[in-house]
Measured scan of single mutants.
Amino acid sequence: NITNLCPFDEVFNATRFASVYAWNRKRISNCVADYSVLYNLAPFFTFKCYGVSPTKLNDLCFTNVYADSFVIRGDEVRQIAPGQTGNIADYNYKLPDDFTGCVIAWNSNKLDSKVSGNYNYLYRLFRKSNLKPFERDISTEIYQAGNKPCNGVAGFNCYFPLRSYSFRPTYGVGHQPYRVVVLSFELLHAPATVCGPKKST
């Protein structure tokens, strides 16, 4: 009989979030998941669920729940959905087409922007091929755009693959930082360890 609440607040209220290319994953298990708490945590810009209804979450049980978190800019949030393409979905964080879970995003301009520009958040701009779903690539190998090998040196047709967002508070919403948490629900042929409040007794 599990009584402890799932530590969603640790994920959502973390002081620092990860850069999207090096997104963070927390496995959540053996706890009571009260998803209604999430609705009250922040004024969400996005709370979209796929393959599951957000209002039914509190009635369900899962084997595992994974919470992935990272920062992107406002106009990239739409890429965090099944079947999307674009720089983020292709080279940084890719959801599977049959994704079961929820994408939660909110504006973090007050936390993640600086007047002089916050350069701490990076994204991958160049990659030889698209990522597979939930693949994480943290390599910093020089990207070869031409025929000549780069031998690890940046220059003509040889690019450092990561680029930094420079978040400034005066930017338009599309270029402001957004914190994203992706909850993916895993149903294996194994005992369910993460249940809503109704199912945990």
Rank of each mutant, 00 (worst) to 15 (best):
D97M: 10
A145H: 11
Y93T: 01
G117R: 07
A105V: 07
F126L: 10
G174T: 12
G51F: 00
P191E: 14
C158K: 05
V115F: 11
Y35A: 09
L38Y: 03
V20M: 02
A22H: 09
D9A: 13
T46A: 10
R124T: 03
A105W: 13
A105F: 08
R136N: 04
S19P: 10
N40C: 06
Y21N: 05
N109S: 13
S36A: 10
C6I: 02
F44Q: 15
L162G: 03
L188T: 15
T193Q: 12
N130R: 15
N109F: 07
V65C: 12
H175V: 07
P177Y: 04
G172F: 11
S164F: 07
S164W: 06
Q79N: 04
L60I: 11
G172L: 12
T46H: 15
D59F: 07
G155H: 06
Y171M: 15
Y143V: 10
S29V: 08
V71D: 02
Y39E: 11
D9H: 12
P161V: 02
I28Y: 15
W23E: 04
N40W: 07
T140K: 12
N1M: 06
C61P: 09
N58A: 12
N107Y: 03
A42T: 07
V32R: 11
S184D: 03
S36P: 05
P7A: 11
Y159S: 14
K128M: 08
D98N: 14
R179A: 04
Q176F: 01
N40T: 12
K148G: 10
N107G: 04
N118D: 14
V20N: 04
S184W: 12
Y66G: 02
F47T: 11
P177N: 03
F99S: 00
S69E: 03
N130E: 11
T46R: 12
N4R: 13
F167R: 02
T193D: 14
T3M: 08
V37E: 09
Y171A: 15
T46I: 11
S164G: 10
S116W: 10
N13F: 10
K94G: 01
Y143T: 07
T15N: 08
V180T: 02
F12K: 01
H175D: 14
R163D: 08
S164C: 08
K110V: 09
N157H: 10
S108C: 05
N4Y: 08
D97T: 10
K128E: 13
Y171R: 14
Y121T: 04
D59Q: 13
R27T: 12
N151G: 13
S184G: 11
P82N: 03
Y178M: 09
T55N: 14
G86A: 05
R124K: 04
E141S: 11
D90T: 05
Q79G: 02
D68T: 02
P43R: 09
Y66D: 06
F134P: 04
C158I: 02
V180G: 01
F99V: 00
D34I: 06
F160H: 15
N118G: 15
R25V: 01
A190W: 08
R179L: 04
S53P: 10
L60F: 08
A192M: 11
T46N: 10
C31K: 04
V194R: 10
N40Y: 08
C49K: 00
A14T: 07
K56D: 09
R136C: 05
L60H: 10
V180K: 00
I80H: 02
D59P: 05
T201G: 14
Y123I: 03
D75I: 06
A105K: 01
R78V: 11
P82T: 03
T46Q: 15
P96L: 00
F44H: 15
E76D: 08
N13G: 09
P96D: 02
C102H: 00
V182I: 06
F17P: 04
D137L: 01
K56F: 06
F62I: 11
N24H: 12
S166Y: 09
A145W: 10
C49H: 00
N1G: 09
S166C: 09
D59G: 10
C31S: 05
R136V: 04
R73L: 04
Y121F: 10
V115G: 15
R127I: 03
F62V: 12
V52K: 03
E76C: 01
F156T: 15
Y143G: 06
L188W: 10
R124A: 04
N13P: 00
I80D: 03
P161S: 03
G152Y: 05
F12M: 06
A145I: 09
L38M: 08
F17S: 04
E141Y: 06
N151L: 11
F44G: 15
P169N: 12
V173Y: 12
Y35S: 08
P177H: 01
S36N: 12
V77P: 01
P169Q: 10
R163P: 04
Y123T: 05
G155I: 04
N157T: 08
H175E: 12
N118F: 03
G174M: 14
R124F: 03
G146I: 05
F185K: 01
F12D: 02
V103M: 00
N157E: 15
S108D: 06
C158V: 04
N118T: 12
C31P: 05
Y123W: 06
V182E: 00
L183D: 00
Y171F: 13
Y50W: 14
H189Q: 14
F17T: 03
D137N: 07
A154D: 12
F62E: 07
R127L: 04
N40S: 12
F134G: 13
Q144H: 07
V37N: 10
Y66C: 07
R25F: 00
Y121P: 05
L187T: 14
I104K: 00
V181T: 01
S108T: 08
N147A: 14
I88N: 03
T85Y: 07
C6H: 03
F99T: 00
A154I: 11
F45R: 15
T55D: 13
Y121K: 04
R73D: 06
K26T: 14
F12S: 03
G51Y: 00
N30W: 06
T15F: 02
N157P: 05
L38C: 03
Y165G: 06
L125A: 15
N13M: 09
C102F: 00
L111Q: 15
N157V: 05
Y143W: 10
Y91A: 05
L188V: 13
K26N: 05
C31E: 05
N157A: 11
V71F: 01
T201L: 13
G196H: 10
L131T: 04
F167E: 06
K132L: 11
A89T: 06
V11I: 15
L188E: 14
P149N: 11
S29Y: 08
F185C: 05
P54T: 10
V20R: 03
T193S: 13
Y91P: 03
P191I: 03
P7N: 15
A42R: 13
F156G: 15
F8K: 02
S19Y: 01
V11Q: 04
D75Q: 08
Q79A: 04
N120I: 08
L57W: 06
S69Y: 05
S200H: 13
C195S: 08
S184P: 00
C49I: 00
C102S: 00
Y35K: 06
F17A: 03
L122N: 13
K48M: 06
S19W: 01
E186K: 09
D59A: 09
P169F: 03
R136Y: 02
H175F: 11
S53Q: 14
K199M: 14
K94L: 00
